[in-house]
Design a protein around this nucleic acid. Sequence first.
DNA 1: GTCACTATACCGACTAGTCGGTTTTTTGAG
DNA 2: CTCAAAAAACCGACTAGTCGGTATAGTGAC
Lengths: 180, 180
Amino acid sequence: MGHAPSTVHRLVDAYQDILVSDGERSATLDAIAQRAGVSKGGLTYHFKSKDELASALFERLQALVEADLEVMRADPGQAATYYVKSSLDVASPLERCNMAVTRLAQGSHPEANELLAKCRTQWFDVLMDAVGHEDMVHLVMLLGDGIYFNASLTGTGAMPEETDPATIDRIIGLIGTIRY
Amino acid sequence: MGHAPSTVHRLVDAYQDILVSDGERSATLDAIAQRAGVSKGGLTYHFKSKDELASALFERLQALVEADLEVMRADPGQAATYYVKSSLDVASPLERCNMAVTRLAQGSHPEANELLAKCRTQWFDVLMDAVGHEDMVHLVMLLGDGIYFNASLTGTGAMPEETDPATIDRIIGLIGTIRY
DNA sequence: GTCACTATACCGACTAGTCGGTTTTTTGAG
DNA sequence: CTCAAAAAACCGACTAGTCGGTATAGTGAC
């Protein structure tokens, strides 16, 4: 019970956290190992290369997205609202993992690019089933991306001020008034 | 007339382009010099350090944003539409420069962070003057960010498909129906 | 001569990945 | 349960290569 997270899990966490907070460049093997509380040798025992670490991150994202899609499918009426609101929760495992993979994609990692494309297609499909109007789905997804992008810069201390959850609620209210 | 761009300009272009298309890690002095078609010595002749290159990029962004704000101030009625639509034009000098600085910010470059925060505040203020409703301004800016974020991933070949300008037009139409 | 470079060589710091060796955990025979 | 052997987990020094930055001799245009 209450497993202490395994070393492998901690290493992926460390990689993810450094990617999110300091960027790809800072995510060196030494830095990852140090944050995970193991030696470099300990890291390379579990992951022979940095690519293997990245692959583990990709698998984590796939699992988290699958769970997220399941939540949305379970309550289609709230799917769009849920999608927009959850974009704001930068501390959630999904958003953090998504952000880490996005950082790799921006460093032109082909596999990261493909995975992100796949995830976005899945979200689009689920939202289409739930909302049924293509333009509205695009609007919702773009809004979610904007919130996410904003939050990702706020996280690194780059924004004038954080996006306020209450503001998001009011914006959702405004969008709810659109007749289509 | 029709100046061939100066070496200094070409070096900043090269830095910007590599940042956008390959990420911070690939933007080495050698790579920048090579893309600009000068030797490494030629680069260091004009920029004593990488930080000076970054500063030149920051100055470029400030100038481009200032011009953009001027366009918006000149036609407040179209400011919001202009803001959203121009987010899609990833090939424009402003968007490319903005993207390059964003890459640096994500690598937690403090000066890049401050500059982005300042620019976003300026855009917000101009949109507030033009639109007059805070939540609508947030909506417009988030939408712009989403389009921009999408486009920036599409650029690196990461998206299922590029956001369609016609779709953006229809979304703007939907937002235009909101009464506030 | 000066400016705007080219070309090349070099240094120190850092980085990914390797490797021999050590510690910890698991196993299974008596 | 006990204890030794085997397997798994981990350590840290080392190697080969990269990157930012410095240095320097030389070239052609003005």
